[in-house]
């Protein structure tokens, strides 16, 4: 067995940072956008903003303690260089602060659309969105930067991580909505909730579709090339060590099933203008499947990169 220098703490970090950065990015985008979400815009943005910083901080805690000497991590902030990890550390540090401030603006009991904090909240949303994308993106660049790891050495990995982060972020917001926003007897709030669910599920279906496309390109690239990458890609192709997990958990449970369920949910309204109805069971099951898929994706990629190597000495 090959040595796994980056194990579960790193995998968990990649997943948690992706979920958190995705949730904050989606929250910021929803808050800033006009129309679509209508009156529920603030409530949706609030869900993402309040949950986002927690997984990011938990993940950061995990990698800092994975070092063995946590205080050494401060050395990262003595300089900035072109290493993806250096840029990523700064992005992550700034993002944690910004996303916490952004979350704080939602905490006062008086918080609502157009309140006193509104300009600050919008300003923070404007910076949280690019930093959130940066945090989700750098992890893929970090893995992709090394020719010594042919499985990772692909520019499309970063795109895959960003799409996965955003869709996990949306999944997180949908899941929170079920628990905190669904219960309401007021018909206007119910209608708003249904509308925001439709918007979220549509965006999530689009993100999952994009992710499927990127996974397809990733595999095709591996299949059509020869040499190192092809040998490496064999780890997730049928017969490979991680094939079961990749095709079962990542592709089937994490991408295909949620994608088609969401498609069947939104197509009637999207194309035929029929009414969109939320189903509690699906609202809980689909996001959980997406989150499982997101974790499995990081797991498969991080492990596959380390058990494969360049093919010729």
């Amino acid at each position: 067995m090959h040595e796994l220098n980056w194990g579960l703490p790193v995998i968990a970090y990649l997943f948690l940072a992706g979920v958190g950065a995705g949730a904050v990015t989606v929250s910021g985008s929803v808050l800033l956008r006009k129309g679509g979400f209508g009156a529920s815009r603030f409530a949706v943005a609030r869900c993402g903003a309040l949950i986002g910083p927690l997984p990011v901080m938990l993940g950061t805690f995990l990698i800092v303690f994975e070092l063995g000497q946590p205080f050494r991590a401060l050395n990262l902030f003595k300089l900035i260089n072109l290493s993806p990890m250096s840029i990523g550390s700064w992005l992550l540090g700034v993002f944690i602060v910004l996303s916490l401030l952004y979350a704080l603006t939602y905490l006062p009991p008086s918080a609502g659309p157009g309140d006193r904090l509104s300009p600050i909240r919008r300003g923070l949303a404007w910076v949280c969105v690019p930093f959130g994308i940066g945090v989700a993106l750098y992890t893929g660049v970090m893995l992709g930067a090394m020719p010594a790891r042919p499985f990772w050495n692909s520019p499309i990995l970063a795109a895959l991580f960003v799409l996965s982060a955003l869709s996990s972020g949306v999944a997180c917001i949908i899941l929170l909505g079920v628990f905190f926003r669904r219960k309401s007897s007021d018909p206007t709030i119910r209608a708003d909730y249904e509308n925001s669910s439709y918007m979220l599920v549509t965006s999530d279906a689009m993100l999952l579709g994009g992710e499927l496309l990127v996974v397809f390109l990733f595999l095709m690239f591996g299949h059509l090339t020869i040499g190192d990458v092809r040998y490496a890609m064999a780890a997730i192709l049928p017969g490979g060590q991680l094939a079961g997990m990749f095709w079962g958990l990542v592709v089937l449970i994490g991408l295909l099933i949620p994608f088609f369920i969401e498609l069947f949910q939104v197509v009637p309204k999207l194309i035929y203008g029929r009414e969109f109805r939320t189903v509690v069971a699906l609202e809980v099951a689909v996001p959980i499947a997406i989150l499982i898929g997101g974790f499995a994706l990081r797991y498969v990629i991080v492990i596959a990169g380390q058990i494969t190597a360049p093919s010729a000495l």
Partner: peptide, 14 residues
């Protein structure tokens, strides 16, 4: 004195 033990270099060395 500067190394933090992140193992990025261990991964990157072919």
């Amino acid at each position: 004195g500067l190394c933090i033990g992140c193992k990025y270099c261990v991964q990157a060395c072919p």
